[in-house]
């Protein structure tokens, strides 16, 4: 399946901004799930400097500066991505018990294992609370296969938590999400990751997009798609297995991956430092279309 994604981020400031310096993680990944065929940035006002580098996690980072006075910043990214179909059934044929995975990660010394190990620790947005462990253990019964238990955890989050964009913000702590059982995709991903890490498993955060289909008989609205987030768990020998707790599905051909890291902080799509600006209004529009 091939998609064209148009992602526009627009800031309107009350006061002029004299200088802004930014980091964008808006270039889709190329990995075992997908191939990026093209990606182009249009930035207004035009940046005086535009550079690219790969970050610690292998994401492509775009670094740009705008030293010219401006009151509106618009970053528009258009990418084309070929998403590979993966046979779903294969994923659930693994019957390795989760404790075995936990112990293997704890002992492992290979470069791959070290990389996985980093995803077993607390991170900026994911504190390893006792309540997370409690919640996780209801799915992670002794000797249960890792993937089976993870799917169970995902399903419980999907059914027990309510999707509520009005309830949480970027800075809502996990404890609040768990107490009120409300949140958005980002919270659910953080929650699941926290659960897995609290019992010694390696879990990472994936940011990206999901194709949404309009209700039957209606036209799809432009800009109505959104950024999305889900998580992946590490299974030695097989790699990172993805799960989408917001939709209770194993990501397949409708998920497009932008970046991955320990949590949202590592993969923030657009961040920056600016001088001036005062209060600002942010609008984001995302379109995911099949081509």
């Amino acid at each position: 399946m091939k998609f064209r994604i148009k992602h526009i981020t627009r800031y309107e400031y009350a006061e002029p901004v004299s200088l802004c310096q930014n980091l964008a993680r808006l270039t889709p990944l190329t990995n075992e799930h997908q191939t990026r065929q093209s990606c182009s940035f249009t930035i207004s006002p035009a940046p005086s400097y535009l550079g690219e580098h790969k970050d610690y996690y292998g994401n492509l980072v775009t670094r740009f500066d705008i030293p010219e006075q401006h009151k509106v910043l618009e970053v528009s990214v258009t990418s084309e991505v070929l998403v590979l179909e993966k046979p779903q059934s294969l994923l659930f044929s693994f019957d390795v018990a989760w404790e075995q995975v936990r112990d293997e990660i704890a002992r492992g010394l290979t470069a791959d294992m070290l990389f996985a190990k980093e995803f077993t620790y607390a991170s900026k947005f994911i504190e390893l609370l006792p309540s997370l462990k409690e919640y996780a253990l209801l799915s992670f019964k002794p000797n249960r296969p890792l993937l089976d238990a993870t799917r169970h955890l995902m399903h419980r989050i999907f059914t027990e938590f309510q999707y509520d964009p009005a309830f949480t913000t970027l800075s809502t702590p996990l404890q609040t999400v768990i107490e009120h059982k409300r949140g958005v995709c980002q919270d659910f991903a953080h929650l699941a990751i926290g659960c897995l890490r609290s019992i010694g498993l390696a879990a990472r955060y994936v940011s990206g997009y999901i194709e949404t289909l309009p209700p039957e008989g209606q036209e799809k609205l432009e800009g109505a798609d959104a950024s999305h987030a889900w998580f992946a768990v590490y299974l030695p020998g097989s790699g990172w297995m993805e799960f989408d707790p917001t939709n209770d599905i194993v990501p397949g051909s409708q998920h497009i991956r932008l970046a991955m890291g320990r949590d949202y902080f590592d993969v923030t799509p657009l961040k920056g430092v600016l001088f001036g600006g005062g209060s600002n209004v942010l609008t984001v529009s995302v379109d995911v279309a099949r081509v």
Binding site: V184, Q186, T212, K271
Partner: peptide, 12 residues
């Protein structure tokens, strides 16, 4: 002082 760019919540 430099300010941080406001970050959007991922909202799907």
């Amino acid at each position: 002082g430099a300010a941080q760019l406001l970050q959007g919540q991922v909202q799907s």
